[in-house]
């Protein structure tokens, strides 16, 4: 994969470069602020972009805004946003961009779990959706939500879908058969009123249904 990194803390930027190169990926550019990110993406056309939320010049949410701007392009580049905190507002904005495919929102801490992080980045680059487990956990805490209709097992499955996992990977994580996972997913789609004919990736729509139910 060819990756463009935007992170203003030098320590982390260097760490991310080392980590990605170790797993055999190419870092096309590593920049320290939002305007340079937009330029670097135009220049290098990477497979995936990794960006911090808070960056110069204003140290507010420039990285996120740059990511949203990039996502408006056609075709939209895959973007993984790293955030110091879980902000549902940010997550919802990101997942709404470009149809929710090829986008990820992770807590910055997750880069510590290097293998999982690189896997998640790969899923985003391949057009998947990755949402931090913490976002999902917060959403699942609302028992009065219409999502109450989901069984605990279905909620577990939805949480794993949100992480961008395949049926096989979900089956492995829950120690059940793939057929059982498929059954749970069908249940989720029905309960969230996502008919089979709906356009777009229904897995992404299921995650979006979660995030919009605020």
């Amino acid at each position: 994969m060819r990756v463009v990194i935007a992170e203003d803390a030098v320590l982390l930027r260097e760490g991310l470069i080392g980590l990605l190169e170790r797993f055999g990926h190419t870092v096309a550019a590593a920049v320290g602020d939002a305007p340079s990110l937009v330029e670097a993406v135009e220049e290098h056309r990477p497979d995936v972009v990794v960006t911090d939320v808070r960056m110069p010049p204003g140290f507010s949410d420039e990285g996120l805004r740059a990511a949203l701007e990039l996502r408006r392009a056609r075709p939209a580049p895959a973007v993984l946003v790293l955030s110091q905190y879980v902000e549902q507002t940010y997550a919802a904005e990101l997942l709404d961009s470009g149809g929710g495919a090829g986008v990820g929102y992770l807590l910055k801490d997750r880069v510590g779990d290097v293998r999982e992080f690189v896997d998640a980045l790969g899923r985003v680059a391949a057009g998947g959706t990755v949402v931090d487990p913490e976002v999902v956990r917060q959403l699942l805490r609302r028992p009065r939500d219409p999502l109450l209709r989901l069984t605990p097992r279905e909620r577990e499955v939805l949480a794993l879908i949100a992480e961008g996992r395949s049926n096989a990977s979900i089956a492995g994580a829950l120690f059940v058969t793939e057929a059982a996972v498929a059954k749970h997913i069908a249940g989720i789609f029905t309960k969230l009123d996502l008919p089979p004919a709906a356009d777009g990736n229904r897995r992404v729509l299921a995650v979006l249904a979660y995030l919009r139910r605020q």
């Binding site: 110091q84 910055k108 801490d109 290097v114």
Partner: peptide, 21 residues
């Protein structure tokens, strides 16, 4: 804290994660 301790801790977990590999 954001610019200092938090970034350092993230870098530390990353280094430890790589060392574990």
């Amino acid at each position: 804290l954001h610019d200092g301790a938090q970034q350092r801790l993230v870098a530390l977990t990353m280094t430890l994660g790589m060392a574990r590999l």
